[in-house]
Design a protein around this nucleic acid. Structure first.
Length: 686
RNA sequence: GGCGGGGUAGCUCAGGUGGUUAGAGCGUCGGAUUCAUAACCCGAAGGUCACGGGUUCAACUCCCGUCCCCGCUACCA
């Protein structure tokens, strides 16, 4: 179906998710986004299509300003560092962006502000005043992340305004107990501020028609399902502005200290980057975004589906002059050796480190990541698999066939392509199969089935190995050298096909192979054609395309990860000691021995348990978030410690009077804190 | 709890408007071979297609329920 679609399109605009410039690139990013997108655009270029491949660093947002504060540098210095690192490692890895821009660039600020202004003038936004925390000393509004306080759930003292890192709960700044500004340390005050909202709900009919009706069958199930879920749940207006000084300034009067919210400015980065490319290359960039004959495709990970399928399209639609994406082939997540990849926990294989540790092996990683890409569900990357795919597939099948062919060509024909004689069935079959491959591989790529496309590419090499083994030229040569001419001619045609068809997947290898064959670059559809290498054409000496990866190399990488895991388990499992408290503050808490009388799960919740306890003073109800770890029956009769004078609070409609004390390990599992002996209910703790 | 995605050979994955022996690659085992980086080639073993019901002449494929994994979402005082 995509093949027919392409006929409608004159050009392709391909974007890859903008990496956030607060850390380096890892294998998860690559497998999910950059490798598939790169395969896609390299293929389109070989097809002779007009295509641009857009990316850049996403450099705004609060996390970057926090990181800058922590390191005592400016946000610009943070993004400069990572932008450069990311850009260089992408280039070295062969990700063939036409432009890799950045959102701190003036072109972007101008473009993003322009989109905002156009939308503003069209009345696309709703203005709303609200109360937000403000630091009077620094005279600025505080981002959620800039407010700390005591987590109302776990009493962790350094919870942030958006999330408690100790218990993982997401919070809102006003939930925090005893909030403090991270800038001045003062208690922030609530102050009125005005923000602009994008009323996503008003665009629901458009989204329903566009996604749920017209893309029902050509979007991936995970993407379509997620969109449907969001739309059906009802969309809410979303604030597009923030009180912050790092970002794109609002292009309106009297809006000092306000910037575009990072999710609003980031996707516009694709447009800015295209504009930058157009200006530096003397091209009309607007066609790529505004002409309905342009096919816009966003490559992203599943965490970005909502932004690229709902929010950004609504923005483009509301702006009025832009096209909407034709497809958003989002991938799932790649895990690493049994655990989620985590930048903060350093659980990752970093691209820039890989390039150092495995020089010249870009294609190996590209191959492995494509073969194990999480196209339909999360998948695991393991170093053992990496080694096996290199040694048993790339080397043993692809590299080996090329090597065998070239060695034999030199051995029997002095490096000249022999002339084919009378074709036998086997020869004909091999050549016919070859002719089918550009179409088969291409069709899979156009349908975003990169794993299958890659497997087909390898099948060409498999076919070559089988053909060569069955033809046995090394046996036949003595009595029938003419037959060997035909056989090796056929093998060389297969190699030439591989040299072209491998390019989207293994660009470095393809180049090497083309050089070995003295083959100049050709268009994709030429790959099936015979006589890419005419009789008498000289080929160069065989060089190895891949080398074996030994156990020691893999072990070194595994050790590196084990070291990380060890550090994580030691350093981070125990949260840091909280700031000192006075004795008075401690003794203000009234903790008692109590006994659980009844327990039942709160309906329609995952974690909540409604518990009736005898505190020695009274019988009371406590709601506790422990249902994931305990069965209600197992709790009855248990001695527990109860924080008895905690302010009552309604949870899911149930009034909770106090809180049960629990210990939590680094896996998040809970256990009761109990007195060693069965003391009477009501016994105080001090 | 709600919503979405997924649960198919040891591993990574295909597949199917329901229809004879459920596929591929890798791994394993056996054979053959030497042109090739002990690689290639041939063959074999391996699956009650998560589980339980239902519809049907027939289900892995459709329907209902349950369980497990991932994500979004509510909840964790």
């Amino acid at each position: 179906m995509s093949i027919q679609h392409n006929k409608k399109y004159k050009r392709h605009t391909v974007t890859a998710a903008l990496p956030y410039a607060n850390g380096p690139i890892h294998v998860g990013h690559l497998a999910g986004v950059y490798v598939p997108a790169d395969i896609y655009v390299r293929y389109l270029r070989l097809k002779g299509e007009d295509v641009i491949y857009i990316c850049g660093s996403d450099e705004h947002g609060v996390p970057i300003t926090i990181k800058a504060r922590q390191e005592g540098v400016s946000p610009q210095q943070i993004v400069d560092k990572y932008h450069e690192l990311i850009k260089v490692s992408f280039m070295e890895f062969g990700i063939s962006f036409d432009v890799y821009s950045r959102t701190s660039d003036p072109v972007h600020h101008e473009t993003a502000a322009g989109v905002f202004r156009t939308m503003y003038e069209k009345g696309a936004f709703v203005e709303k005043d609200s109360e937000q925390y403000y630091d009077e000393e620094n005279r600025q509004f505080l981002a959620d992340r800039y407010i700390t306080g005591i987590c109302p759930h776990c009493s962790y003292e350094k919870a942030y305004g958006d999330q408690c890192e100790n218990c993982g709960t997401s919070l809102s700044p006003t939930d925090l107990i005893n909030p403090r500004s991270m800038l001045s340390g003062n208690k922030p005050v609530l102050k009125k501020t005005r923000h602009w909202y994008l009323p996503l709900d008003e665009h629901e009919p458009m989204l329903r028609k566009w996604i749920l009706e017209s893309h029902k069958h050509d979007w991936k199930p995970n993407v379509y399902g997620q969109c449907k879920s969001w739309i059906d749940q009802g969309l809410q207006p979303r604030a597009v502005t923030r009180d912050l000084d790092w970002g794109v300034k609002l292009p309106l009067e009297n809006t000092e200290g306000k910037v575009l919210y990072v999710w609003f400015d980031a996707p516009i980065g694709y447009i800015s980057a295209t504009r930058e490319w157009g200006e530096t290359h003397g091209k009309d960039w607007e066609k790529y975004w505004k002409d309905p004959e342009s096919k816009l495709v966003h490559f992203i990970g599943k965490d970005n589906i909502v932004f690229h399928c709902i929010i950004f399209p609504v923005m483009l639609h509301a702006e009025g002059s832009y096209i909407l994406p034709e497809n958003v082939p989002a991938n799932e997540f790649l895990n690493l050796e049994g655990d989620k990849i985590s930048t903060s926990r350093n659980w990752a294989v970093w691209l820039h480190e890989y390039l150092q540790d495995f020089p010249g092996k870009q294609d190996v990683l590209r191959y492995v990541l494509c073969a194990a890409a999480p196209e339909t569900k999360d998948n695991y990357f393991t170093l053992k698999d990496f080694q096996a795919r290199n040694n048993n597939e790339l080397l043993a099948i692809f590299g080996n066939f090329v090597n065998r062919t070239l060695v034999l060509t030199h051995k029997y024909f002095d490096g000249c392509v022999p002339k084919a004689g009378q074709l036998m069935d086997a020869d004909r079959e091999a050549l016919e199969s070859l002719a089918g491959f550009p179409g088969i591989i291409g069709k899979n790529i156009e349908q975003y089935r990169f794993r299958e496309a890659l497997a087909q590419m390898m099948n060409l090499a498999r076919l070559g190995n089988r053909y060569l083994t069955e033809a046995e030229p090394w046996k036949v040569f003595k009595e029938n050298p003419a037959r060997v001419q035909t056989v090796l001619n056929t093998c060389l045609q297969l190699c030439a096909g591989m040299a072209l068809l491998a390019e989207p997947f293994l660009p470095f290898t393809a180049k090497k192979l083309q050089a070995m064959l003295n083959l100049e670059a050709r268009a994709w559809d030429q790959a099936g054609k015979q006589e890419l290498l005419g009789p008498g054409h000289r080929v160069n000496k065989a060089e190895l395309l891949f080398e074996k990866i030994e156990d020691v190399q893999i072990r070194a990488q595994v050790d590196k990860l084990l070291e990380t895991r060890k550090n994580n388990n030691q350093g981070q499992s125990a949260p840091p000691v909280k700031p000192p408290v006075s004795f008075d503050a401690f003794s203000a808490m009234d903790i008692r021995v109590a006994t659980i009388l009844e327990a039942e799960k709160v309906p329609k919740t995952k974690k909540l348990m409604k518990i009736r306890v005898d505190s020695g003073l009274d019988r009371r109800t406590v709601v506790s978030g422990i249902a994931e770890y305990f069965e209600p029956e197992a709790l009855v009769g248990k001695k527990v410690l109860l924080l008895a004078n905690l302010e009552p609070r309604k949870i899911k409609g149930i009034e909770s009077h106090g809180m049960l004390l629990m210990a939590e390990n680094n896996e998040g599992a809970l256990t009761f804190v109990i007195p060693e002996e069965r003391f009477e209910n009501g016994s105080p703790i001090s």
